[in-house]
């Protein structure tokens, strides 16, 4: 039905699979979704469904967002929107509420997209995995970037691996598997780690068959 859902990252823990082996999982809590617009090829050039999530106060959303919500005819005050590109949109109607738990039932491999933790201005060893220099024999500073390029052009080539801002970028982890869903707590368990800090928003996307291979 929907092939992309937002969720809050809760944190990592352990669970046991059917055979009692321990599995490392990340818990995420999906948002309830409201359909705010259906995009059709004849009007918009492509087929997608626009969904709103994350409840908030009325004073926290701006007039355009209020317009989007009132057009959809929903009572809820939702601050965020996103689009899920998909062909089957005829079963959906404006203002319809979607419980993500019903959507993910037959999902296989997924892609999890989030914003990675910001590391600030990082050196070349942390940012690019440089080996650094020897720690003994009087080396005064052993994490310097050292030589990077030829000296002949008398300038630095663009894209050189230098120290700089690291993290706080959109990162996708592909090929993760859904381990379980807990309906009482509304928690999805994903096998493995997902990008971003605890409390951050991540998007779970169903991978197409071609991508999954």
């Amino acid at each position: 039905m929907i092939n992309k859902i937002p969720a809050t990252k809760i944190g990592m823990t352990t669970m046991f699979d059917e055979q009692g082996f321990s599995v490392p999982v990340t818990l995420v809590q999906p948002f309830t979704l409201v359909v705010t617009e259906l995009k059709r090829p004849e009007k918009h050039g492509y087929s997608a469904v626009q969904l709103a999530f994350k409840e908030t106060l009325r004073k926290r959303i701006n007039k355009p967002q209020q317009g989007v919500l009132s057009k959809a005819g929903t009572e809820k005050i939702l601050s965020k929107s996103y689009e899920s590109r998909q062909d089957e949109i005829d079963a959906l109607s404006l203002g319809q509420e979607i419980n993500p738990a019903e959507v993910i039932g037959d999902w296989g491999k997924i892609k999890v997209t989030g914003t990675s933790k910001g590391k600030g201005f990082a050196g070349a060893v942390k940012r690019w995995g440089f080996r650094g220099q020897q720690r003994t024999h009087g080396d005064p500073d052993n994490r310097r970037p050292m030589s990077n390029n030829a000296t002949d052009p008398a300038r630095v080539f663009k894209g050189s691996r230098r120290p700089g801002r690291l993290g706080a970028k959109q990162i996708s982890t592909r090929g993760l598997k859904l381990q379980s869903y807990n309906p009482e707590l509304n928690l999805i368990a994903i096998k493995g780690a997902v990008p971003g800090p605890v409390g951050g928003t991540v998007f779970l996307t169903l991978m197409s068959k071609a991508e999954a291979k």
Binding site: T14, N182, L185, A189
Partner: peptide, 13 residues
């Protein structure tokens, strides 16, 4: 959030 993780774990005990 820590409480959610604890609840998730205690359900499996």
């Amino acid at each position: 959030m820590q409480q959610l993780i604890r609840d998730f774990e205690s359900a499996q005990l």
